[in-house]
Design a protein around this nucleic acid. Structure first.
Length: 419
RNA sequence: GUGGGUGUAGCUCAGUUGGUUAGAGUGCCGGGUUGUGGCCCCGGAGGCCGAGGGUUCAAAUCCCUUCACUCACCCCA
């Protein structure tokens, strides 16, 4: 019979990989809490409308990459492709905005997009997501970015680039959009097929094109900063000024546009050369009207999403939780010894000590081999013979020495050794 | 959705111009010591050569289909 395999694009995360995951999660909890964020856990499944309204009808995510299905022939539901929309939904549904003027939330967990899998990108992937809802002053932006970079630094990630930009607001962005359109007008023939399509959907994304001719053309185009209104320019300046207070290198990248419709003003991205084509580790930005667009008051927000798998891929091997090597392995010889060993082994475990044994009644040699393989610090050698005499041998596996110990005080001896 | 690459033992991979019972390393199990690990030596188990079809006296090898994995594109964290 054939085994049933995981769904395409869905991955098992096995040990010891899970140690890394726990390490990253623990670090996130610790760092984010210090910056005053509280954890929120939102459902993986939402009404489809939440995302089409939040992310934007014409984005690729909504158009072709969502895991959407009709629930019992009634309602269209979608596995969340990102967390921000859900967080804002919960923020509004529970009227958190009425309870406080600043809400700092984070969450971590799986997201779903129905794309062709490739390196660092699966259909179920994971993100760490943080949002600040309420204030729109530039120090908020700087604080969020600062926390993000601090988090990445603590994880020890190498060669990261922080790029920031301002996309302007409803006042100034349309003018820029028009400028780009008129700049490209008449040159459609020179652009690649994708870019011609982009002209109709999101002309700003021509900046992202990797085709050389497109890149050449767009390099002559006017840039966004020149079109920022006074308010946006000032905001952006202040964000940068706040960042400069810290030892935190960043690059202003006027060509960085983002894929989601809701971003306004500050946007940022953290990239690395380590990950092939999937070079972005984090993306984020300000969304001044998303809360309003989702039916709430006109409250602004800013947030980021970290690609968990990409983080994992960059963390050095062995940089995780302490390895689960046992303190003690009990090698038992004989039926009586096996029974005694089983009892001792589990009693010590209940006291929090990691003890292993083998129940199969193998030779001492093979049990020693197993103890060695498990990297057990000590091995207790316990045969029927020793039980008669109320003793056992405690072997130090590193020093290759062993001593005789009394069996009835064995638990105390082990407890003492363990410290 | 589009294009390229790869599918042989648990894992990493050999396998000549098609030619006997398909190999290595590693891992696993056992032995070399009446009850003592690592190093070393010996033995064993483990493969429908991704699946289906075709060509041929003969297919892991050639052809077609399909599936999976993988890299890239679109897009995105």
């Amino acid at each position: 019979m054939e085994i049933i395999t995981a769904v395409r694009g869905f991955k098992d995360i096995l040990p010891p990989e899970t140690d890394k995951w726990r390490h990253i999660e623990a670090t996130a909890h610790q760092v984010f809490r210090a910056f005053g964020y509280r954890e929120i856990r939102v459902p993986l499944l939402e009404k489809t409308g939440l995302f089409s309204r939040g992310i934007g009808e014409s984005t690729d995510i909504v158009e072709k990459e969502m895991y959407t299905f009709i629930d019992r022939g009634e309602e269209s539901l979608t596995l969340r492709p990102e967390a921000t929309a859900s967080i804002i939904r919960a923020y509004l549904e529970h009227a958190l905005h009425a309870a406080e003027t600043v809400t700092k939330l984070y969450t971590l967990g799986p997201m779903f997009r129905r794309e062709r899998p490739q390196k660092g990108r699966y259909r179920q992937f994971h993100q760490i997501d943080a949002e600040i809802l309420g204030p729109d002053d530039p120090r908020t932006d700087a604080e969020l970015i600062l926390m993000l970079m601090h988090f990445l630094k603590i994880l020890g990630l190498p060669n990261l680039n922080l790029e920031i930009n301002s996309l302007g607001c409803a006042e100034c962005r349309p003018a820029f959009r028009e400028a780009i359109l008129s700049f490209l007008h008449g040159r459609e023939e020179e652009l690649c097929g994708d870019c011609r399509r982009r002209l109709g959907t999101n002309p700003l994304r021509v900046f992202d094109c990797k085709v050389e001719t497109c890149a050449n053309i767009i390099s002559q185009a006017p840039l966004l900063p020149a079109f920022l209104c006074e308010g946006c320019r000032e905001h952006f300046e202040k964000v940068q000024a706040s960042l400069r207070l810290f030892d935190l290198p960043f690059h202003q990248n006027p060509k960085m546009v983002r894929g989601l419709d809701y971003y306004t003003r500050t946007t940022f991205e953290v990239t690395t050369e380590f990950l092939g084509a999937q070079n972005a580790v984090v993306g984020g930005g300000r969304y001044d009207h998303l809360v309003r667009d989702l039916g709430g008051p006109d409250i602004s927000g800013i947030g980021f999403a970290i690609g968990f798998e990409r983080l994992v891929a960059m963390i050095p091997e062995g940089d995780g939780d302490a390895s689960p090597d046992p303190i003690l392995f009990i090698a038992a010889l004989g039926e009586m010894a096996l029974r005694k060993a089983f009892f001792l082994c589990n009693r010590l475990r209940m006291k929090g000590i990691h003890v292993e044994m083998d129940h199969a009644g193998r030779s001492l040699k093979s049990q020693m081999k197993r103890a060695d393989k498990l990297k057990s610090v000590y091995t207790l050698i316990l045969g029927d013979r020793e039980i008669q005499e109320n003793k056992a041998f405690l072997r130090n596996m590193l020093a290759s020495t062993q001593e005789e110990i009394r069996l009835d005080s064995m638990e105390e001896t082990i407890m003492r050794i363990e410290r």
